[in-house]
Design a protein around this nucleic acid. Structure first.
Lengths: 125, 125
DNA sequence: CAGTATCCAGGTTGATACTG
DNA sequence: CAGTATCAACCTGGATACTG
């Protein structure tokens, strides 16, 4: 999760894909975006919605998303504290490409499973 | 790179995206697929084309791609050995979704950079 | 509530040397 | 040529305890 400023700086070729993947490739980013896609959420709401995420990782991933302009964080000056997260238009725009990717994944799963079984069978044989 | 058999097994929700990202999210996978998209390549060709990849990682990534049915590996019984890698139709199909994602990335870069500058400025301030 | 600080286990990667 | 084997460094992530 350390600084990964590579999205533009050192991208010489015309394929930004490796950078995008690092951008949204943090372990919980997608699930955060999906959850926030349904509407703004508070920290604990996210923590409960995203099964298995640790407090630490949720924080780090949110900070990263915020830093990259994909998520906004608004603090309401209440007691007890209340912080609301929401996705930005920029993040909205990435939903469609991601949905296509997801669609491909759903279609590809049978072939993937088959490929693995065959590979593993051969690897053992 | 250890076994990650999760693509189907434990996916309860209807969002396969985290799994896809692990599938093609290995550090060099995309670059391998892009390179092979231009035509079959031999091991050393890939090693030279993909700047910064170590022999070890190239091997591991290729094995993973092969296991998932995204790349084929054909050994020509020559001396010296000759091994040719190529992408499968399954991998061809993923190029379009990935291209859309790349297109989004290219468009989003200015906003990303701006978001970061602002965030980092505030973080220091 | 919404984090931060700390510690640690484990996984991932690169460098390097070796092999059929 | 096309790898495998080994080792060390690094990074990531989870658990936990603490705080405004």
């Amino acid at each position: 999760m350390s600084q990964r400023n590579t999205v533009v700086t050192d991208q010489v070729t015309d394929c930004p894909l490796p950078e995008v993947l690092r951008l949204i490739g943090d372990k919980w980013c997608i699930q955060i975006l999906v959850e926030l896609g349904a509407g703004p959420r508070r920290f604990t709401q996210l923590e409960r919605a995203i099964e298995g995420v640790s407090r630490r990782m949720l924080t780090l991933n949110l900070r990263n998303l915020e830093r990259n302009g994909l998520v906004t964080r608004t603090v309401h000056p209440d007691a007890p504290p209340s912080v609301e997260y929401a996705i930005t238009p920029l993040a909205e725009d990435v939903r469609e490409p991601l949905e296509l990717l997801a669609r491909w994944a759903r279609g590809a799963i049978p072939a993937l499973v088959a490929a693995r079984q065959e590979y593993d069978a051969r690897a053992r044989g």
